[in-house]
Amino acid sequence: MIAALRSGMMGGRLSGLLLVALPVALLIWLVLWPVLQAMVGTVYFPGTGFSTASYAYFFTDDYSLRNLWLTLWVTALTSVLRVTVAMPIALYLRFRTGSVAALVQALALFPMFVPSVLVAYAFIRVLGPNGIVDTVLVALHLPKLASPYLTPAGPIIGLVWDGLPLTLLLLLSGLGRVSIASVDAARDLGAGSFTLFTRIILPRIQSSIIVTLAFNVLGLFSAFTLPFLLGPASPEMMGPYMQRTFSDNADPLNATTQAVITFAFCAAFGLIYVRAIAKGRKGPA
């Protein structure tokens, strides 16, 4: 019996490796190798040797720096906005049950089912020039609003809308670790809502908030579709900038340089995020 089990495990070793071989090969060929290639290929050139000229160009070029700066603050603002908007909903959903709460949850998760192309389209119809908001304002004899379409506010609004569900789910799963009894206990001793949030709930979900922010930063820093469709043409965010450099300017070297720079800016967040998933899953064991 034991011998049979053992041979089964030996077979498991080989067949295990065989079963994961294809995805792993694909991962190495199309992700890890390109990343390595991008990092090395932008500083080492066969024949001519080392050169950091493309990086020097990026960090001296005024337009590139303006794009980077735009990306940084849009990412920061959008991440914070997503958490700020999702937090009250998450708190409400954690501590309330009932049919109204179920509806709130369904609505808040709804954007998950709306592809970003459709988000962009719907955004233009609502907040774009002569969109429904303008229509309503005119009908009420109020002045039209300055449309956020093609300004940095455009992608920010679109990205907050689009990212609300996942932010909410991450926060909810963090709040799941705060037991209702521990909140009741604090309430019993006289803690008000504010004290409850800052002294009991916040310390427990600190790590969840950090992970949520990291997840958002990673997704936002190189966001492409919404900034491209809703954002300004100049300066532009890193996503559209990379795409234009690669396709329109046919300049893969500078596009790759920009990609490596985004990797560098996101490295810390990537580390935080992957560590959190790896810890949460405790590996596949």
């Binding site: 992700v31 390109p34 991008a38 997704g219 190189s222 996503g239 920009q258 990797f263 996101c266 990537g270």
Partner: peptide, 11 residues
């Protein structure tokens, strides 16, 4: 997951 997606696509 640690890499911004569009950067990976460029690479």
């Amino acid at each position: 997951q640690a890499f911004p997606k569009f950067g990976l696509i460029i690479a």
